[in-house]
């Protein structure tokens, strides 16, 4: 018969609404897996912070309070724009939807820029574990704090990069008309992911930047 490529198995759905519900449920299930993926790290963080409260407070004081705070504001704003894009596509305003997504993407890039700057600073201060780490006379557990700092923010940044890719893909799909008022789902689905990654940072911010006291 025919090659499977030219005749892909028909989508298993009876109507668009069923498809949409399945997409949402699928994305939420994926987010549950993400909670546990980051959750393993949060559990590890809790155990080690419980064992070394002073080293962790010391580590927190080495981080730039203003960068963490500014970055939180940047991400919250980007989330607002993603939510606005979802609203716009449902109201058939494709231009506004694209504008909002571009704004969200630029803010995401700004976040990564600030993060990169902070990484660079830490590198100069010899606070990168594994490569000439210098505890500056503090407890050796300081290195554990910085290990977790880099791993947690690094994995978060990796998720941001995926999110930026997804926003780029959305912009193209909206431009081609493949995502529109009739088929708005993709914006909401990418949006769910973006908001979730934002929430991860909402917890990283206090755990890393606000425990110096």
């Amino acid at each position: 018969m025919n090659d499977a490529l030219s005749h892909p198995a028909a989508p298993p759905y009876v109507d668009r609404d069923q498809h949409s519900v399945a997409n949402h449920l699928g994305m939420w299930t994926f987010l549950a897996t993400e909670i546990l993926f980051f959750g393993g790290l949060f559990t590890g963080y809790t155990v080690l912070r419980w064992a070394h409260p002073h080293a962790f407070a010391e580590g927190s004081r080495h981080l730039e309070f203003w960068i963490g705070t500014a970055n939180t504001a940047v991400l919250l704003t980007s989330s607002l724009f993603v939510a606005l894009a979802d609203l716009a596509i449902k109201r058939d305003d494709r231009r506004a939807a694209r504008r909002h997504l571009v704004a969200a993407g630029l803010l995401g890039a700004a976040f990564l820029g600030l993060k990169g700057f902070e990484y660079f600073q830490k590198f100069q201060e010899h606070l990168v574990p594994g490569s000439g780490f210098d505890a500056h006379g503090a407890q050796p557990a300081l290195q554990l704090f910085f290990f977790l700092y880099f791993l947690m923010t690094g994995l978060h940044a990796l998720h941001m990069l995926f999110g930026l890719g997804a926003i780029g893909w959305l912009l193209r799909q909206i431009g081609r008309g493949a995502v529109s008022r009739e088929r708005p789902d993709a914006v909401a689905i990418v949006g769910l992911y973006w908001h979730f990654v934002d929430c991860v940072w909402i917890f990283l911010y206090p755990l890393l930047y606000l425990i110096g006291g």
Binding site: A32, E34, I35, G39
Partner: peptide, 10 residues
Amino acid sequence: VFALAGFLWL
């Protein structure tokens, strides 16, 4: 329920 399950398991 699915949204909460992740937090519950954590």
